[in-house]
Design a protein around this nucleic acid. Structure first.
Lengths: 118, 118
DNA sequence: CAGGATCCAAAAGGATACTG
DNA sequence: CAGTATCCTTTTGGATCCTG
């Protein structure tokens, strides 16, 4: 069972805050976000957990960062990789299932939901 | 954020053991499984957690049971509802993502993986 | 600004035994 | 057979403060 692809994938993305972080990185035109920007927008997350999740997501290849050193203080810019963008599509399937079977939510019926922007 | 469909859906299906249970219920021709049958096949799960998860899944409408009383001792038969079956399709998307981006797994490349049978 | 360190509370889950 | 009950360990994450 531990060798199952679904199991292993869920161990990456099934943790608390992971999906909100991915969605926040997906939102808007600007696809790069700074650490504190994420901390502000992912409401309720603490810096510790955000840091831990970002490391995990980088390790797993869904997120990358680069450190802009032209201006001080340095800023870390996080963005979705191709696999990260692709995972947002899976999240969209989760959302479709939820709206179909469970949650009547007029927000989510709009093409861009204000909660998750997908 | 707590009002987000994705968030709420993940609270239902994101818990440990939930997906293995759903997949076990999906497997094979016989779509009804007894409690101890599930306990045996979902390797490693304890009766307590299995019981808790089955209640959750019934509450959320993904699983139903009926108790056969013609033979004693009584047997509980668990099976996927329509929404439960439909969620398996979401799991298939998760699997596709995993095999595409993360895990080369010859098992999972087959149409029926021996771990999850999807 | 970006994050690491600490300490603590709560939750989740495992082991095991037990019962109608 | 189908769970419940109990106890305990582990994990997780929250709060907060600190630093280069």
């Amino acid at each position: 069972m531990k060798n199952c692809t679904v199991y292993k994938t869920m161990n990456i993305v099934g943790k608390r805050w992971t999906i909100p972080i991915l969605l926040e990185l997906y939102k808007g035109e600007k696809r790069e976000k700074h650490f504190n920007e994420l901390k502000r927008k992912v409401v309720g997350i603490t810096p510790k957990i955000l840091s831990v999740r970002l490391v995990e997501l980088q390790t797993e290849g869904l997120v990358e960062k680069y450190v802009g050193s032209s201006v001080l203080p340095e800023r870390s810019n996080y963005f979705l990789t191709e696999s990260g963008e692709d995972f947002v599509k899976v999240i969209q399937e989760i959302k479709k299932w939820g709206t179909k079977w469970k949650f009547e939510n007029s927000e989510c019926d709009r093409s861009l939901c204000r909660y998750c922007d997908i």
